[in-house]
Amino acid sequence: MIRGALVREWQVLLRAKGAVINPLAFLLLTTMLFVIAAPDAITTATDEASAVAPGVLWTLVLLTQLLALDSMYRRDFDSGVLEQTLVSAQVPFVTVLIRIFMQWLSTGFIMACLGPVLGVMLGLSSQALPATALALLLGTPALSLLGSVGASVTVGFNRGGVILALLVLPLFLPTLVFGADMVMAAQAGRSVMPQVYALSLISLVALALAPFATLAGLKISLEMQ
């Protein structure tokens, strides 16, 4: 069953590349817009610490993730795949976990890989680039996990986007705080270990909590029709 679910997720991912590419395009586009809007905030000297880059980068990552979350369960909900999962699967929990993992892989993980590029665009000092990638790698799982809970209860709504944002953005705040601070610390040459621990802890708590809550949320949404 686990293998079947993984295979399916992978096949869908390969055929709906837009789900991966569109959020990335959005991220790059909004980054560009920020730089155009506030050129004075960007310093291109690579050894100089930037005061705005970490915060802007993380805010844009949050918004991109939010955009991707809206469609996290939408297709499966509309096609009845979700329904079949809950009726027939031996352990629906595992399927949900796999879905969240694949969602992270197609958004958070790729954003983490792209992090240094964004950092360069935003004028982040070059010594902070590896830490940026690491911070995104540790922080984005929490975004996918907590976001999955919000997506699960709003998937039955016709226009759930704004409600989803209201539900999950406050929960994203801790990740934003420690993620941005980790990049700041790396720029200043401070130790980033406290932030590494904090981000890992947040993601672990989300991992313990979110799959159960998502499953409960999906059941509620499936009962709405």
């Binding site: 079947g4 295979v7 096949q11 869908v12 096609s79 009845g80 795949v81 079949q84």
Partner: peptide, 21 residues
């Protein structure tokens, strides 16, 4: 709603549905 993913072929859909069981 049939539970068939539009992005998969009948063969793939059937394999996944059987996998659920």
């Amino acid at each position: 709603r049939l539970g068939l993913d539009g992005l998969l072929t009948p063969l793939e859909n059937l394999a996944w549905l059987a996998g659920l069981e």
